[in-house]
Nucleic acid binder design. Structure first.
Lengths: 255, 255
DNA sequence: TATTATGTTCTACATTATCGTACGTCGTTA
DNA sequence: TAACGACGTACGATAATGTAGAACATAATA
């Protein structure tokens, strides 16, 4: 193996799968062009992925798409957390009527693992599998506020701050200040930082080492998410995330 | 490339991912033993999957688990059908109060893509990402009944019939007879074939070629799923699956 | 009908993946 | 506390494989 310690053909096959994030179906020649590979090289990799059902061939169009085995493997990721968490998402939606999400930390992002959407016509629609920045989401900030300071500092160092609205916190010191505040309150808030009209409250989920790694957030339009509503939500939200934490092996509750 | 036309290192890396279907975390040596590979071979493959985030290392235990990028890719599979279908699953649960599933055909099985569970304490719990036999599930039979006869015959030929209960249909001719019946009715039923006490109604979803490829099923305990209830369910179930079919590009409704 | 594009096959050989050896770290045991 | 065993990881020689060029079959397009 070469210096960069990556097996080339395995890398290439994963890059092929990633091509399908932006395309529903792709042909062999399309993939070879996107990847900069010879057609027969691409074909060999694609055929191997097809044998393993990570790709499937559409018999009608002759093109390939992501296969069911990838779906099945995907459902195994963080299945413990998702199975434990989903009933609580449903409870929170029925209590408060706004969209509820389960997110995990992924370096400088959070990834949405589950959602239960509000039944309001005007609701916040999130995308499971989607990724959003950790520094301007309530879920992200509630996690950052509850990991060891050295780790939080290292993550913040790697953040490429971008301003989404006039309210986006783009200053490290202001972010750290906010995280202190959120840690004390036990929950984080995000008010029109990511998108105007969007408001969110979140509380962290701890692993058995007592470190936050996930969060539950509740999102609604600013017009419905008043300060009083935030406070009311936070009480049971924290209670639920602590219960989930316990079920994930966390021993001591935050008081 | 060799005769069997599979690229060995890509195959091996996919087999590594499949090891995690039965294990939440695995170490390098464990994987090398399961796979029958040298430790350093296994390590090279694992490290490559880690770079691409299909595997993640648990820093505390030193073991590996399936990574978030696999989850994200998984959410892309059949996302069109799942996005279109989910609101209908929610409607059916609120109308009938029993667990509703969205399944797709996968050779001689059906795979569960989405579910919305009943709020009854005694409910049918299915597993998203799980696979069940096509011949003794309502969803499976409703799909088999609505594909070209030659294809259905070929699939049935490959079925390895197993008896789960005294009610399981294990005879090809009886199955074909039932499929005829289901096609005429527009929906399929499964009454305690897979498991005693389990009852199910399902209707097919068609693609733009007019071929069934997916289905929605409603499952409940036999005590609640009376014959009258089946009939009541089928009316709106068929209406919904036809609407989903239309949104998936199917042009003509079954009459 | 001719041309172009695509998917697929075959095979020589250049390149890589494999694996044997070795090392550092950590946990266990005496 | 020291020794031992297990594990994860690094390195490099070489056997084995994956790549890509050429060719072919098929389908789409002008």
């Amino acid at each position: 193996m070469q210096n960069d310690k990556v097996i080339q053909s395995v890398s290439r096959s994963v890059e092929i799968l990633k091509c399908f994030q932006d395309h529903e179906e792709l042909g062999v020649t399309e993939i070879s062009k996107i990847m900069g590979l010879h057609k027969s090289t691409a074909f060999g990799l694609i055929a191997t992925l097809e044998v393993h059902r990570l790709l499937e061939k559409n018999q009608e169009t002759g093109k390939y798409k992501l296969g069911l085995e990838l779906f099945r493997l995907g459902t195994r990721v963080n299945s413990g957390l998702r199975n434990v968490g989903t009933p609580y998402l449903e409870k929170l939606v029925s209590l408060y009527g706004e969209t509820v999400n389960l997110v995990v930390m992924d370096d400088t992002s959070v990834i949405y693992l589950e959602k239960v959407e509000s039944s309001h016509s005007m609701r916040i629609c999130t995308m499971v599998g989607g990724r959003l920045p950790i520094y301007c989401t309530a879920g992200g900030k509630s996690i950052l506020a509850n990991i060891p300071k050295a780790e939080a500092d290292a993550v913040i160092e790697r953040i490429d701050f971008k301003r989404f609205t006039d309210n986006t916190i783009c200053d490290k010191d202001r972010l750290l200040q906010y995280l202190d505040h959120a840690k004390k309150k036990g929950y984080a808030e995000e008010s029109e930082e990511l998108e105007l009209g969007l408001n969110c409250v979140a509380a962290p989920i701890f692993n058995h080492f007592g470190k936050a790694f996930a969060a539950i957030s509740i999102s609604g339009p600013t017009s419905r998410m008043t300060e009083d509503f935030h406070k009311r939500i936070s009480v049971s939200l924290i209670g639920f995330t602590q219960e989930i934490s316990r079920q994930m092996g966390y021993v001591k509750t935050l008081i």
